[in-house]
Nucleic acid binder design. Structure first.
Lengths: 238, 238
DNA sequence: ATAATAGTGTCTTTCAGACATTATGAT
DNA sequence: ATCATAATGTCTGAAAGACACTATTAT
């Protein structure tokens, strides 16, 4: 060990921005305008603005605002990937974050013409679209994190608009987890948590009894349920 | 966004090496021999050897072997911290890992004279000892991760020697979690998991019925229990 | 025999999951 | 009236937690 035990590497941050659109879990991709991987699609990441930002989280929040026009997006760090094979320019390190947004709040920005952006259903990745860097791997890991934390937290509320119904939220859970959840079990779970409150309004939607609207009492925070949603398969080893 | 969306920063990795010694959760610290923070204690981290290592995990495994003499130590990524306040030399980024070792396997290396190392009980941090960089913060977060994952995984087996008894393992859980766990509940939980096997030997220890030794059937892996150890307080919001 | 500690069996509690019943609103 | 869907209540099952009891060894 030498006296200087710090090194210099290429470093970037990569937000994996999830939303639910047309009943599908989607991720936001941008078309790269420069080498390496020019013209491939990738995560809307890049360098941290070291002049404007004092730490990584500020850097990420700024990047999210740039790309989506939204402040106060929910995000959490996923993990850091470092390798000499990720970027043709050499040894590089990237820190990935997952971020969850409601698609309605953001869709204006999609029309932005100088940067090509799109929402891609995660089902379609790995088939038609080849991504830059290790972004496919990051997204896979991000989906994994989103799924596993949705079993015991209220993470999917971050996909909801300000006002939402239990059926809407349940659908979000079902899309993320890829399973059906019984309405009764779901209602009980949410009521017990005591993290939502009725707004007094109702969702008039079709030929059926309207569901009441709720709002999140602690937007931005995360709630940990006492128990876990039990899926059928039991895959305990990792 | 410019064409080059990657940046150059000071980068290091920091392993938080935990063990249980004298019934206390301890962390391995080294005395710094160079600026910045010369002569303060800190984590045994540093730069990744980019010539020898193709990725971060290799770099960390190498560093763990350097510091402890052990290969195949259990470790997992904790998180990445980046800021302009962490290192007086400027904007820097560090990726922290938690690693769990059995103290018996390592204590020879403590005698190493050219580097001063010591095991510090985490209780003692924050009082007497001031640490370099943000290492105190990293350790706090590492302890938090260790505690919360010990509620639903077999993480503490990584503190055990090759052969261990349920009472020994239960004590490790109790030390990590800071709670008593009833012997009966614990035994049931471990037996149901089916991740350990009897070695056939017994721990002859004192004037009491000897406990049988077990070995981990999947060393290095992590097991996720179906349920969770329930602590008394309910702190669901974060 | 006694002390110390291990294992087993049973009961309770918590919470998920399933089913049946009732409630409400559009057509 | 009918249909679709929401809410409520009851039962079951899985697993944690607590307690009583039995088992095994050293002294």
């Amino acid at each position: 060990m030498t006296s200087v035990n710090i090194d210099i590497v290429l470093f970037s941050v990569d937000p994996i921005i999830f939303t639910i659109r047309d009943q599908q879990l989607c991720v936001l991709l941008v078309k790269r305008t420069a080498e390496p991987f020019k013209d491939l699609w990738g995560l809307p990441g890049g360098r941290v603005d070291k002049k404007q930002c004092h730490n990584l989280e500020q850097g990420l929040a700024l990047k999210l605002e740039e790309k989506t026009g939204l402040k106060n997006i929910f995000f959490e760090q996923l993990g850091t990937y470092g390798s000499d094979e990720m970027d043709p320019r050499g040894w590089s390190v990237t820190t990935a974050y997952i971020a969850l947004v409601n698609v309605e709040k953001i869709n204006l920005l999609e029309q932005n013409q100088d940067i090509q952006m799109m929402w891609v259903p995660i089902e379609e990745l790995g088939h038609s679209i080849k991504l830059a860097f290790w972004h496919e791997r990051l997204i896979t890991d991000g989906v994994e994190r989103l799924k596993s934390k949705s079993l015991y937290t209220d993470l999917p509320v971050n996909f909801m608009p300000d006002q939402f119904t239990y059926p809407m939220l349940r659908k979000a859970y079902e899309i993320v987890l890829g399973t059906n959840i019984s309405r009764q079990t779901f209602t009980k779970r949410m009521d017990q948590a005591g993290i939502f409150e009725l707004t007094g309004e109702y969702h008039q939607d079709g030929p059926a009894r309207p569901a009441p609207f709720y709002r999140n009492l602690n937007p931005g925070g995360a709630y940990y349920f006492p128990g876990v949603i039990r899926l059928k398969e039991k895959n305990n080893e990792i």
